[in-house]
Design a protein around this nucleic acid. Structure first.
Lengths: 222, 222
DNA sequence: GTCTACAATTTTGTAGACAATATAATATAC
DNA sequence: GTATATTATATTGTCTACAAAATTGTAGAC
């Protein structure tokens, strides 16, 4: 399964380490240290860092270095706004085509429901697997519209979103609540109540925003 | 003015060569040839290519090479849909904050109005300058909402959009028409008619889509 | 004459080395 | 004792060189 090149592999590794806060906000990514840790050379690492920079996962200061980007309330609100914009637009697209059956999304939700509780494991690999499954639901939803550019964009902001979701999922019962909201949303789509589904979506997003907001303000996690 | 690193400089150069179709869709970007042409080495070029890939300007096929991405009707419709989504959402944000004065956007429009006619010059550098000025109007509009993530995303799709606009601007009087539409839009914002402005925006985008559509179908340009 | 297999060449992918700049640490002056 | 300047170190930025894989061309067999 090692068909990918070094850049792609190290990219995914770094991405997930940042999401689960194994690489913490503000941390300086020393190119020599990291390339040695991962057993690779600097060029593919640098290529990966440039891609991460595009996703706003890291920030590069010329001639100084590359740092893990900070988590801030402003940034979180921006990501949430953007997410709301895209997801709501997707519902509009589904409505326009009257697409009610979303087998890929359903399947993703089912997989997410089968995840163990507590959701956040102390095991790094386990946490990464969980975060991936939760991400999948939303990515599939956007993909079901058939607009591949939208999928790309959503996927891109999804990485940042996942960092905040990692905070969110530490909150008791947040995962269950989230899954319930998702199920309700899908049911409304299935019965063709697209506008209601959109409202439900907005409510869910605003709810999670409020929850995470407090955590960020009080620096409870990360 | 050469304060940027090699990657950033070559990135911008390649981006603009792709936009004005100096590097044509499907063209194979041979790393050795291009790095020699630009008088640089391969590593910074590769970093730039990975960034361009994120912007969908080029496509990389592992172990085969990097190619200038194709222009297609499907892609153009997707970019236009996404653009409409973002710009309309920006108007909503402006409405929510009741922001009517957009000095940056006005100034950008003024600069665009002062461009010579015919808009598309045979001179490469001149064409690039013109495309930049036209891009500015939209970028400033999104920036005026204060959502920096949205600006990043818009800027990102803006490069692809510019490739299609380059086709559009070859059409007689399209630039004047476009400037008039933009002026009308700004006036509606100024008087607080946000919803009307949004309608105007949608009309403008759909109009340009129809125009470019035919060109793409008949392979008139590029 | 065409198809297949092998070899040569081109090109991507990766590694390692060098150069330039920023940071730090230490020494000297005030 | 503090502040500044200078030197030393470490790190980014860039280039050159090597390894692996893919493509292309040629030769041989059917």
């Amino acid at each position: 399964m090692d068909t990918l090149n070094t850049t792609s592999r190290v990219l995914e590794t770094l991405r997930e380490k940042i999401i689960i806060s194994h690489l913490k906000p503000g941390y300086k990514l020393n190119e020599i240290d990291i390339s040695e840790d991962l057993g690779i050379s600097r060029p593919p690492l640098r290529e990966a860092l440039r891609i991460l920079e595009k996703d706003n996962m890291v920030v590069n200061v010329p001639r100084k270095g590359t740092y893990v980007s900070e988590l801030s309330l402003k940034d979180f609100i921006e990501v949430s706004q953007t997410r709301e914009m895209i997801e709501c637009y997707c519902v509009d697209l589904l409505k326009a085509s009257n697409i009610r059956n979303l087998p890929e999304v359903e399947s993703a939700l089912r997989k997410a429901s089968e995840l163990p509780s507590p959701f956040i494991s102390s095991d790094e690999a386990e946490s990464i697997r969980h975060i991936r499954v939760m991400r999948d639901f939303h990515v599939r939803l956007v993909e079901s519209t058939g607009n591949s550019l939208l999928s790309r964009i959503y996927s891109s902001i999804g990485y940042t979103l996942a960092r905040y979701q990692y905070i969110y999922f530490h909150i008791d019962d947040a995962v269950r609540q989230s899954l319930d909201d998702h199920a309700k949303f899908l049911e409304l789509i299935r019965e063709g109540s697209f506008d209601k589904a959109k409202e439900e979506l907005r409510k869910h997003i605003n709810y999670t925003v409020e929850l995470v907001k407090n955590r960020i303000i009080h620096r409870a996690v990360f």
